[in-house]
């Protein structure tokens, strides 16, 4: 538990958050491990958690009939995985699978949502941080959609 608190306090994502709030977060946190190939979450299921990835890599994928899974993004050690817990209807839009042995800290999103409702200062701090992540993902997705390298595989 001590290790958990330490890790969260030192995580750049939480930089500037006061001790009281970090304590609240620690109250919702637990260590998790995924073996290579394990699903971290599945499309359509309730999203009540997000992860601080400490080690390893998670691939976010979507399954296309006849084509199989298409990987659209990876999340690496040091990054945050999952934001569907923050937006209604709190359901995962994609599958997430560990590409290798992955260790992470899981934060109970449901618990955190309630705490954010009660304490809007905490809510604002959390929202501010996730807004950055969502904006970065949106920007990266736009660049991805531009398909800048052109099609060379199918020629």
């Amino acid at each position: 538990m001590r290790d958990l608190e330490q890790t969260l306090r030192e995580h750049p994502f939480l930089e500037g958050l006061d001790a009281e709030h970090i304590k609240l977060l620690v109250g919702c946190a637990s260590n998790v491990v995924f073996k290579e190939g394990d699903f971290v979450f599945r499309e359509g299921l309730e999203a009540n958690v997000f992860y601080f990835i400490r080690h390893g890599r998670v691939l976010i994928e979507t399954h296309v009939p006849q084509k199989g899974p298409i990987m659209i993004r990876s999340r690496e050690a040091g990054e945050i995985l999952g934001w569907s817990w923050l937006v209604r209807p709190y359901r995962w839009h994609f599958d997430a699978r560990a590409a290798e042995l992955t260790r992470a800290i899981a934060l109970d999103g449901k618990c955190l949502r309630e705490k954010c409702e009660e304490d809007h200062d905490l809510g604002y701090e959390v929202m501010k941080r996730f807004a950055v992540i969502i904006a970065e993902l949106l920007e990266a997705t736009r660049l991805q959609l531009l398909d800048v390298y052109g099609n060379s595989t199918n020629k």
Partner: peptide, 16 residues
């Protein structure tokens, strides 16, 4: 930018 099959590496744009 996109992967299918056995790829286990990074997926996403290079700038990230």
């Amino acid at each position: 930018d996109h992967a299918t099959g056995a790829w286990r590496g990074n997926v996403g744009v290079v700038t990230s």
